[in-house]
């Protein structure tokens, strides 16, 4: 299924939340990376059809989404950024309710719920009230509801918020397996969520998106822009005010500081292999790129 976002803009009063966003997606995992307030959730909501764009259109296989709205909704799985639950519902009630919303019923629905509960590790807790779940369990329940209808398009807004490292890895594997022959858009500000599984990444900042590329593209573009240098704690305090620091490791009586910069920040700085995280920091800290 081909999903085309064509010149989407959104205004909230005087605030321009999105400005002429355009890109295409077709099978595989796509990462939407951007800091908080960049417009990720607004774009995601427009794609999911729960918010109207001020202008532009979303095309499904070349057809305007509004013309095939019901068909689109039947193929969509969506996990919003925030999700709380009905106080009177157990995890099982909640999944059954969402399944009913998605038009599932009978034995196949029960099988699907059981299978997803196993996949997200909630089998033992399905009969507990979901308001009593931990943050991670709530998120996993949210992921399970998004997958109930075997969606062809899966839209996940900050899916790993609240998950511990083990759950995060499990989630990544789940999405990776799921994404075969399907389109997954994963919005996050956590680079490691998309680093290993995203087929392509699009970065969003102040409501505008950059070029959609493979993560290798962003990493390669950073060659010669990531440096390692040694300094003291006092020097770091001053240094970090006007440089992009991507990592700090204590090494004896000094610190090994990883700096992202267009220019060699100091004569003794050593160029190192860049990562997607470096590219992310570079992209969103344009005012501090030059040493």
């Amino acid at each position: 299924m081909k999903l085309t976002i064509k010149n989407i803009s959104k205004r909230y009063g005087k605030k321009q939340a999105l400005a002429g966003v355009s890109f295409e997606m077709e099978n595989g995992v796509y990462g939407l990376l951007g800091p908080n307030g960049a417009g990720k959730s607004t774009l995601i909501r427009i794609l999911a059809g729960v918010t109207e764009a001020s202008s532009g259109e979303v095309l499904i296989n070349g057809k305007n989404r509004k013309l095939c709205d019901l068909e689109f909704r039947s193929k969509l799985g969506y996990l919003p950024q925030t999700l709380s639950f009905y106080p009177e519902f157990s995890g099982l009630d909640y999944l059954r309710f969402v399944a009913a919303l998605k038009g599932l019923k009978g034995e196949s629905m029960e099988r699907k719920i059981k299978s997803l509960a196993e996949q997200v590790g909630l089998t033992q807790d399905l009969h507990r009230k979901c308001v009593n779940y931990s943050g991670g369990m709530k998120r996993r329940l949210g992921i399970a509801q998004a997958l109930l209808n075997d969606p062809e398009i899966l839209i996940l807004d900050e899916p790993t918020a609240g998950l511990d490292p083990h759950e995060r890895i499990k989630f990544r594997n789940l999405v990776s397996v799921f994404s075969r022959d399907r389109t997954v858009l994963l919005s996050t500000h956590i680079v490691s969520d998309v680093d290993s599984i995203a087929k392509q990444i699009v970065m969003i900042k102040d409501g505008r998106v950059g070029k959609m590329e493979k993560n290798e593209y962003f990493v390669e573009a950073m060659v010669g822009k990531v440096w390692l240098l040694k300094m003291t704690v006092d020097e770091l305090v001053v240094y970090q005010n006007n440089h992009i620091i991507s990592n700090v490791i204590p090494a004896g009586n000094h610190l090994e500081v990883r700096v992202v910069s267009d220019n060699k920040p100091s004569p003794d700085a050593v160029a190192v292999i860049p990562t997607l995280e470096d590219a992310y920091l570079y992209e969103f800290n344009s005012d501090r790129r030059t040493a």
Partner: peptide
Amino acid sequence: VQTDMDSIILCSVKG
């Protein structure tokens, strides 16, 4: 609205 279920309901087939 208060439980943020609006999004999930509105994008579902029967929502």
